[in-house]
Write a protein that binds this DNA or RNA. Structure first.
Length: 800
DNA sequence: CTAGGGTTAG
């Protein structure tokens, strides 16, 4: 009896001391020691110690240890043990394993409790992030598991448990199911700081900054925000540039003693920099007692974002005196080189990166691709891309963007197909990078594919995506689809409206563009300087001279937007296309900014329609004096002298182009027939069906002559005899394309032809005749607009 | 005995 009591007493003592030892273990070595003691005492299979050991191993990032303890108690019969193993696995990122254990637990018909769900929910959420991209089926599975969990939570009546609800909230945020979040949050009976933080962070991370700020303001009435809340809301302030609220939060921090927190101060630096208030950033920085690398990087990045590059460099050298730059610092420096397009600076940074051994970093590698592209060195971007061992989605998006930046669309499309072959899932930025390629090439088929991909990704309601789609469809010859996308967009910004106005402008729908502009103003969206470029261009493409000029004044007076060179160019285009050349020239000479080559070039193009050689010659003189590098203008100038028969001047210009190492963009046209793209260059003789195409053009020439057509030889721009000039005109690439299209499609089928340069006046006339003779709709897109030829007329009303 | 939110520089 006595011995028994003593035994029980010592057993209790052992229990307590082992439990204490286990709790206070601070290293895995200590843990192993205590574990051995527990085993020798024969207590390792007890519910209490096994559960505690499982959790303890998880704490030291040793899920294998947790598992081996769990296996020794199998079949486990206590909820505590199951909870522990599920939590241990989730804690270590082994989400799918955690869910497998959860399924087993469900099969055992053990009663789950409020401790089970938070871990399970976390596992669901974690898996969605990591594996859904690669394994869509797995993602579905998790979605189902998430629903089961939610259902069980409701059935068990533990919906009111704050921790469980918070877990559900966080899971749905990770699935980006915002409506569910809203519902759960509104139904929560009890909310604590964590609940508020979950929704505020969640909205901020989903990019819904206004929503996040609104919730924060609601929260402060009842709860004390902590550092997490403050961090999230400051991020939101920075993103939308809400300086006022940012200052309010800063005051709150000062009042509540968060001011000396380094992390919080770093966020403040970032917020002020994003709001453009570098002085405030600097003040916060100077007050930080313990500046860490992030503090320095944040301030330097602030200076770079606000284009104060010299300040940034000064700070950098100061920083280097007591801290070593890390990969983030180098990424920022690369971004600076890119912004400045200074390849020498970029290469120096690249050398430093190699020296410091940061060249193996994925983020740095991606930044290098971007830097080289922005410096116009696509070759170096490609080299960097090929040299990279690991590539993530950003790598692919960067190289595609690089190709787009250098206008190498074929390379760009090659990259997108390589990306598909290598199994990389495209994302939203991929869509934003590829859509402009389709726009430029008028590749409608690829554009449509991307559109369906956008639906599959579920990002069709994203505003920039919608904007890019509007542009793509309008440039691919489908105004109808553009309008459809526009109508379906729930949220619209100034870019959306501008895309619509430009679309109308390209199709010569000036009146509709004007109406769209008014509608935009009526919905309370203020036009920016680009919207004005779009509307004035739309006017000039439709011959709405008075309206265009009115908008130019409207911009200055009502919106206080100072006209830039491109606005002046629009007005010059507007006047000269309508034959008001004297007014256009006068306008250039009276403008407050120094006219550059683009203005004279615009005037010169405008001269083509009316053939005013005097103005053309004066404009040419200005262009030559300005010594621009744009070949397009020199082609125009040389055309003027060719038309005047001043061949010595033509030769002089050609020679100076050669000396500068510049080459004229060759004119080319292309069209899509049955999913295949056919390209034609000016005067091409080596393509399929060359003979047939030529014969058809001859037949058409005969028929046109009967209708009264006479070739306008001022557009044949070579120093050759008259009849040879006629031949050269016939060789213009758009004619080859049209003839080829006529031969290879059924009668009556509308044709769509793209051209990289502007259509010449003679081709414009010829196309009108052809549309009448063959009774077909011919849609021609040139450098900046569409011409729909139908029964002898053109939609542009000859304002080409 | 076990549970929930994670913020800053790119």
């Amino acid at each position: 009896m006595k011995a028994g009591k003593l035994g029980q007493r010592s057993q209790e003592l052992l229990y307590v001391s082992l439990s204490k030892a286990l709790s206070s273990a601070t290293s895995s070595r200590q843990l192993h020691k205590v574990h051995s003691l527990i085993i020798t005492s024969g207590l390792d299979q007890s519910v209490f110690f096994s559960g505690k050991l499982i959790s303890k191993y998880a704490q030291f990032k040793n899920p294998v240890g947790s598992l081996s303890v769990f296996r020794r108690v199998s079949p486990a019969n206590s909820v505590y043990q199951w909870n522990s193993i599920i939590r241990a696995l989730t804690h270590n990122g082994l989400f799918s394993d955690a869910l497998k254990f959860y399924s087993q637990m469900r099969n055992l018909e053990l009663k789950q409790d409020t401790y089970t769900f938070p871990s399970v929910i976390n596992a669901c959420a974690g898996l969605s992030d990591l594996e859904m991209g690669v394994l869509p089926a797995c993602g579905d599975l998790v979605a189902v598991e998430g629903q089961i969990v939610h259902g069980l939570v409701e059935k068990m009546g533990i919906k009111k448990d704050v921790i469980v609800s918070n877990g559900l909230l966080s899971m749905y945020f990770k699935f980006n199911r915002l409506t569910d979040c809203k519902l759960i949050f509104s139904e929560m009976v009890v909310r604590d700081t964590v609940s508020w933080n979950t929704v505020i962070c969640g909205y901020s991370q989903s990019g819904l900054f206004e929503e996040s700020i609104k919730l924060f303001l609601e929260m402060v009435d009842n709860f004390e925000p902590d550092l997490l809340t403050i961090g999230s809301v400051l991020r939101a302030c920075g993103q939308i540039g809400d300086l006022e609220l940012g200052k309010y939060v800063h005051d709150y921090m000062i009042r509540n003693g968060y001011e000396c927190d380094t992390t919080a101060s770093n966020i403040l630096i970032n917020m002020y920099a994003k709001c453009g208030n570098l002085l405030a950033s600097r003040e916060v920085f100077d007050r930080i007692r313990f500046k860490d690398l992030v503090s320095w990087n944040s301030l330097i990045s602030g200076y770079i974002q606000n284009e104060c590059f010299e300040e940034a460099m000064k700070l950098l050298s100061k920083m280097k005196a007591d801290l070593r730059a890390d990969s983030v610092t180098y990424v920022m420096l690369l971004s600076m080189s890119g912004q400045l397009a200074r390849i020498h600076h970029g290469k120096e940074v690249h050398c430093d990166i190699i020296k410091m051994g940061f060249d193996s970093s994925l983020v740095v590698g991606n930044a290098l691709i971007d830097m080289y592209a922005k410096c116009g060195k696509l070759e170096d971007s490609l080299k960097q891309f090929e040299n990279m061992r690991d590539r993530d989605i950003v790598t692919w998006n960067s190289i595609i963007t690089a190709c787009v930046h250098s206008e190498d669309y074929n390379q760009g499309f090659r990259m997108t197909s390589r990306m598909r072959i290598e199994g990389m899932m495209p994302d939203l930025p991929t869509m934003l990078a590829t859509l402009p390629m389709c726009s430029f090439l008028a590749a409608k088929r690829q554009g449509k594919e991307i559109h369906s991909c956008i639906f599959k990704l579920g990002i069709q309601s994203d505003v920039p995506v919608g904007n890019a789609l509007i542009e793509m469809y309008s440039k691919c010859g489908s105004l109808k689809h553009s309008l459809l996308v526009f109508e379906q967009m729930k949220m619209k910004d100034v870019v959306t409206w501008t895309a619509l106005i430009s679309a109308y402008g390209m199709y010569g729908e000036g009146k509709k563009a004007l109406r769209a502009f008014e509608e935009m103003e009526a919905t309370g969206i203020a036009p920016d300087h680009i919207a004005f470029v779009a509307i004035i261009f739309a006017c000039s493409h439709s011959g709405l001279v008075d309206e265009g000029q009115a908008y130019f004044d409207h911009m200055k007076k009502k919106y206080k937007i100072e006209p830039r060179i491109e606005h002046y160019a629009c007005v010059v285009d507007l006047l000269s296309r309508s034959g008001l050349l004297a007014e256009a020239e006068e306008f250039i000479l009276s403008m407050p900014l120094k006219p550059d080559a683009s203005l004279w070039g615009t005037l010169l193009s405008g001269c083509r329609a009316s053939g005013n050689v005097k103005v053309a010659e004066r404009a040419s003189q200005h262009i030559i004096e300005l010594n621009s590098d744009n070949t397009g203008y020199y082609v125009l100038v040389s055309n003027v002298y060719a038309a005047l028969g001043k061949w010595d001047k033509v030769r002089m210009i050609r020679k100076s182009l050669r000396n500068k190492g510049l080459k004229k963009d060759p004119g080319c046209s292309w069209m899509e027939i049955r999913n295949k793209v056919y390209v034609f260059g000016t005067g091409d003789r080596f393509f399929e069906q060359y003979e047939e195409v030529n014969r058809l053009l001859e037949i058409l020439a005969g028929l046109m002559a009967k209708e009264g057509y006479v070739a306008d030889l001022q557009f044949a721009l070579h120093d050759v005899e008259e009849d040879e000039k006629r031949d050269l005109l016939c060789g213009h690439s758009e004619r080859l394309a049209i003839a080829f299209g006529l031969l290879n499609t059924k009668p009556g089928t509308p044709l769509q032809v793209m051209k990289n340069l502007r259509v010449c006046g003679d081709c414009h006339t010829v196309t009108k005749y052809i549309s009448k003779i063959v009774q077909r709709e011919l849609l021609v897109r040139d450098a900046n607009r569409f011409h729909l030829f139908k029964d002898g007329t053109c939609s542009c009303g000859d304002y080409w």
